[in-house]
Structures are given as structure tokens and as C-alpha cells.
Design a protein around this nucleic acid. Structure first.
Lengths: 250, 250
DNA sequence: AAGTGGTCTAGACCACCGA
DNA sequence: CGGTGGTCTAGACCACTTT
């Protein structure tokens, strides 16, 4: 190749509307392969030189694509060893998506007790947020999450049943995102969260063993997979008397 | 230059302990110049070729440094025009640091009413969070922020007086970060936030014109300048009945 | 037309890792 | 030792913006 553009490979499409840089196309192609399960979480990708040869681009372009994916936490690069598909193990989720930390002391992952797990037609809100046709079947989970035996989060989750066949019959672990990845090939890549302060209703209060009217932090989260499909909606009601939600901006 | 390393420029230091990549050094040098006011917010930096010549590195290295700074929101790159020092105008702060948005409707920036602005010795908490010696003088501001005439945030701010000489005598605008940058040469580059749900005390309640015990979102934020010095601590008590705090992860 | 940043390529040397 | 990613350079062509 002499110099540029999404061109020059014999037989390539002649640069139509909506250009996308080559490295962007490489990134998307690699993501597609990961989504399709060509490389599993924790496994190494081929080397940059390999991928460059496979895809017919230069090593530098592959590198830029992998750097972008690394900054999105989709892969992990380790000097001298290789580039690995990111794992959704506890360690990772703990830092990336679980923002509740104790006011003092180490952060720890809560134990979860599932109180119910049933399939039902989606409510209007569920259908909208998960981009499903009205009344599509969803799985609804309610659980209590505790730290050191103390209930701190009451959580309601909604998932499209079609994406998680058989989930309602499974034993549910503390870290659901790990299960999604391991058993259903769905990795949570990003989330949107809306936070509010609310007063505990009597149901909330009894679930968390506090007085009704106690101030709770409500986290309303939609989780998206690698290809931006919404795959989970969860509303978490959190006791923040000894914990807080921590975030860094900029 | 033939190929690599923080070397080869005649007279350069002979690669000691704690290497830092050249592009990192270029980034830091450019940040220092911005901090020192060589280029003001909104102004264009010299072109990549210019900077490369000035600094004695290749254009590619300058580019990597500028790309890093762009991803940190320190500069803005505009194809065909140039690279500009980021501005801390309302537009920018609105999206980067102001995360409260209405449940429905457009996001808007609140009007602020300053109720008090006094200098005093730092409390223990202020001294610790702002990394000051005990009892260093600080400026303490209390203000109410309203949207469409409705009070929605009660906010207490603490700033080191040494960094903001004369601020307590100034007219304070709605967007303080713009003032910090414009009048004191201090840009807020990053923040750390801790969120909790709390019940309104009687003082909070009267300030926000709600019933005591109303659930409020407490945002405890420390803001850092370009060189990671803490320059502001603010605690915001937010009414989240018609608004929410929005964040995207991953 | 000239100048800017955006992309792509190619080749070099380095630090790190595992056999 | 050979292979990997990390960095640096140099030069090319592109799209965009302004003159």
C-alpha cells in the first residue's frame, strides 16, 4: 500500500458515503470476532503482525485499533506477552462498574441473596429501556446484597429472556456480569446510570431493615453489550450510611 | 534522529531512572506552558510542525502528546484549523463536570445566589482535603443554585485563599470554574466525587424550601488543577425530585 | 492555493517476558 | 534467545478550513 484511505486492497469497496478510518474498521472487525466468540475472554489475540497480515493492513493500523480497544477496556495489553480479551471477573467489575465503596476500609464485593427470579411479559418501561417489542418476555430478578452480613442494596433486574435462555433455572452468582459473559457470551461493555436520592417505602425499608423514610441512593442502570445492545436494566436502592458512590471526572 | 529513546538530542540527559516516554515528556512540557499562561484558553497552539521543531522531536511524537491531551480534554483539535487550549466556558463545564440533568427536557445551567462568602482558618477536614497546613486561611462560600426559579442545590465551597487572592471581594458568576481559569489562571482538570443520600436537616430544608427529612443527594467533590493540586472542595445538597445525576461507565 | 490536523505506512530500536 | 508490545521517526496522501 502506498499511502492512505480505505482503499488499495484489490477488490475493496470504492470509498462510499460515511467513511470510517481503516483503524476504526479494524477495531470493529476485531470486536465482531470477539462477540462471535473467535477469541474467548482471557485468551490472547494473535500478535499485531499476525493480525496485520490477516487483515491486509499495516502493523501500525492494527496497533491503533488495539490501543483504542485497550482504552475502552475491551482488551488488555501486556508488554512482552501479548494482547488479551478482557475478562469480566470480579476484580475487573469491582473497579469498572461497582462504584459503591465503604467510607472507611477496603472495598469489597457484596454477597447476594436472590429473593425471586421469574419470567414475565415486559412492562412498558422495561420494553422501552431494553428496546424490546411490547410484552416481550423478560426475566425479573429481585435480590438483596449484603456486606458483612448487613443488607446494603435492594436490587431489581430485568433481562430479555431471549438473550439469556435458561437463566431463570440457574444458580445465580454474586457477580452476574461474569455469568453473562461465561454462560451466554454477552459482555457488558458500557452502562448508563441515573442517580437519585429517594425515601424508603415500607417495602424498601423492610427489605433493608431500616426505618421507612430513610434516605436511599437509587441507581438506575442500563447495561449495554459490546455492540451497544441493551441487555440488562437494574434499579439498585442503596443504603449510604456507611458507604458512598465514588466517581472520578476529567 | 535514528530511531528511539529519550536520547539523541545533543545535550539531552542520559536516560536516567524512571524513564518517561518522549511523548509523555512533550505532553508535560506543553501542560507546563499552558499552566504558565504561554497560551491562554481558547487560543490556538502552534502547529504540530512548529512544536516539533521547537522541541526537537518528530511531528509524530508531538501528535501523540496532543492526542493524549485531547483525550484528557486539555486541548481541542479541529481539523484544518488547529489545536486550541480547552476553554472552561459554560458549554464545556456543563457536559464535563455538571452531571445533574432534568428527568425530562433539556439540560440547563442553574442560576446561583451567593448567601455568604467569607475568609476563615481552615477546619481540619478542609485542611486535609485541600492538602493545606492546619488553620491555613481559606475562603468559604455558601450559595443556592436554582433552575427556573426553583432552588435545587445548596452548596458549600472551600478554597485556599492563597490561590484565589481577592476572590472574596469579587462578583461571583454562575460558573465558578470559568472564573478560576479566567481570573486566577487555574483550570479544573479533574475531580473526585463521593455521592450519598441524606435526609435534609432543618437548615437544608429551609434553604431548599422543602420539608425537613426530605431525601437529598449529597455530592462531595474535590477539584484538581492541571498539576493535580486540590483547589476546591464543595459539598452540594441536591433535590432530585425532578432531576437526576447522570453518568456513563465503560 | 496553502496550511492544518487525520490517517496510513514502513522501518528502526527498546524493554519486557518466557523458554 | 526470539517474540511481544512500546516508542520514535519519516514521509506520504487525505479532508477540511481559510485565504
Amino acid at each position: 500500500m502506498s499511502g492512505s484511505g480505505p482503499e488499495e486492497t484489490p477488490g475493496a469497496e470504492p470509498a462510499e458515503l460515511g467513511f470510517r478510518p481503516l483503524y476504526r474498521q479494524v477495531r470493529d472487525a476485531l470486536i465482531r470476532r470477539i462477540v462471535d466468540g473467535a477469541w474467548l475472554p482471557g485468551q490472547p489475540l494473535p500478535s499485531e503482525m499476525q493480525l496485520a497480515a490477516d487483515l491486509g493492513v499495516s502493523q501500525g493500523t492494527v496497533r491503533k485499533a488495539l490501543d483504542a480497544m485497550a482504552s475502552e477496556n475491551l482488551v488488555v495489553r501486556r508488554q512482552g506477552r501479548g494482547t488479551y480479551v478482557a475478562r469480566h471477573d470480579d476484580e475487573r467489575v469491582l473497579f469498572q462498574f461497582f462504584k459503591l465503596v465503604p467510607d472507611e476500609g477496603e472495598r469489597s464485593f457484596p454477597q447476594s441473596q436472590v429473593l425471586s427470579c421469574i419470567a414475565a411479559p415486559a412492562s412498558a418501561a422495561e420494553a422501552e429501556l431494553l428496546r424490546l417489542k411490547p410484552a416481550t418476555r423478560i426475566i425479573r430478578i429481585f435480590r438483596i446484597r449484603s456486606i458483612e452480613g448487613r443488607p446494603v442494596v435492594a436490587e431489581t433486574l430485568s433481562l430479555p429472556e431471549a438473550l439469556f435462555p435458561g437463566l431463570s433455572d440457574m444458580e445465580l452468582p454474586n457477580n452476574l456480569y461474569g455469568l453473562y459473559a461465561m454462560s451466554f457470551g454477552l459482555s457488558v461493555a458500557s452502562t448508563t446510570e441515573k442517580l437519585k436520592a429517594v425515601s424508603a417505602t415500607s417495602e424498601d425499608a423492610s427489605a433493608l431493615q431500616v426505618a421507612p423514610g430513610t434516605a436511599l441512593l437509587e441507581i438506575d442502570r442500563v447495561a449495554f453489550s459490546l455492540d451497544q445492545t441493551p441487555i440488562e436494566w437494574r434499579v439498585s436502592l442503596c443504603l449510604t450510611e456507611t458507604m458512598h458512590y465514588e466517581t472520578h471526572l476529567g
